[in-house]
Design a protein around this nucleic acid. Structure first.
Lengths: 217, 217
DNA sequence: TGATTCCTTTAAGTTTCTATCGACAAATTC
DNA sequence: GAATTTGTCGATAGAAACTTAAAGGAATCA
């Protein structure tokens, strides 16, 4: 029977360590020890530590973008508001399912690191394109308020990443267990609430393709 | 004339470097070079690199908590909603004024680092106490909806920290310049909007921009 | 069987980092 | 003015880091 590949072992060990100790705080030796492989294995598969970093970031964002595209494909017939909700749920779920990798990626994003920024530039541009399009659609169809799109994107991303980025804050200060089913539903509700109240016009009724001034009186 | 103290030089150099390269990504030698002092100066004033870290974190949070307490003192006569708005503005301003230190501190918070967590525990507990009290007051006086307080605190903190934590995202992806006067006002408006719409009961709705059905005709 | 490719290990090269020591200068105190 | 404290500097020991070269082994294929 084939035991887990050395490459796989390095990947999962490094995700775990980068998540808890950060990229710079983790040595190749640490990774090799945790993965139970020889030190040089890392160089063999990823050339060096930076190569491993690039690989992991691409791994995360490839799937991330794929989630967005899949949702947009499959929700073609829904209202923009519903699209946004489905997308929110899918992205939250993706992040929770890959919480270690996600936390690590988001943290490294906050560094002024040329390498990382170059790797991420394309992905972030795509993400922005899809988000922008979505919000513009919503505004055009009068489902959404006239939003300052960049600010809203920022808010949206902030809310999405908060629980992934600060899990210890949730457990140690707020005494909530992030990542369990209950938390997921609760947080999703909060975000739906935000969509309904802060993004959309009317909290009660929305119509497809009908301008909201028809609804009013 | 007294040139800036060596200690001061080390502090500001380290804040700058930790901000851009992270704690583990910065060496004591880097700091000494940027500060234009001898390497041993760091140990002399802060015992070692960890000591410097502790000092900076305490520096940030001492002032941070002080800002909260000052606002709560001075807004004793206002409604809870107004209190929350004043507090939001004060904290945003404090963060922007200390953006480098703030980004660094928030980033290090996302690591599973025992030392850091111990230093911050007291501050975060205080912060939570004040926030919780404030939201409970608002709910009791019926100004606020019946909120899940922990979730709301999380959202609130997420929004506050987003612009500080991801400045490059704003400049490079959204093409906004964070930290300038215009951005500050815009973002503050967004947060006031959130307070009005998502935190408070709806009746007193205010729009950032006029709702589009008014613009329409 | 022999050759090839893929994977792993040994071993060392080279750089980089932290922390500390002892000497020296300047300022302050007595 | 002497003594003491405070601040600074250069050098370095000792540890830890990343990377690479070269060889050993296993599996596959001709």
């Amino acid at each position: 029977m084939s035991q887990p590949n050395s490459k796989e072992k390095v990947i999962s060990a490094s995700i775990g360590l980068f998540n808890t100790k950060g990229f710079n705080g983790t040595s190749v030796r640490d990774i090799a020890n945790k993965a139970n492989v020889n030190i040089a294995i890392v160089s063999y598969y990823f050339k060096n530590k930076k190569g491993l970093l690039e690989y992991l970031i691409s791994l995360y964002f490839d799937q991330y973008i794929h989630v967005i595209e899949k949702v947009l494909m499959e929700t073609d017939l829904l209202t923009t508001k519903e699209k946004l909700k489905v997308l929110t749920k899918a992205l939250l779920k993706y992040q929770v399912d890959h919480r270690q990798l996600a936390r690590f990626v988001y943290r490294e994003m906050t560094l002024d690191n040329v390498l990382i920024r170059e790797v991420m530039a394309t992905y972030l541009a795509k993400e922005k394109y899809y988000f922008k399009q979505l919000f513009e659609d919503g505004i055009r169809s009068k489902e959404f308020r006239k939003l300052e799109i960049p600010s809203v994107i920022a808010q949206f991303k902030g809310m999405l990443s908060m629980p992934v980025l600060q899990p210890q804050y949730f457990t140690e200060v707020l005494h909530i267990i992030p990542y369990d089913e209950y938390f997921f539903k609760q947080y999703m509700k909060e975000m739906e609430n935000w969509i309904e109240l802060s993004i959309c016009h009317s909290p009660t009724v929305t119509f497809i393709n009908k301008p909201s001034y028809v609804v009013g009186d």
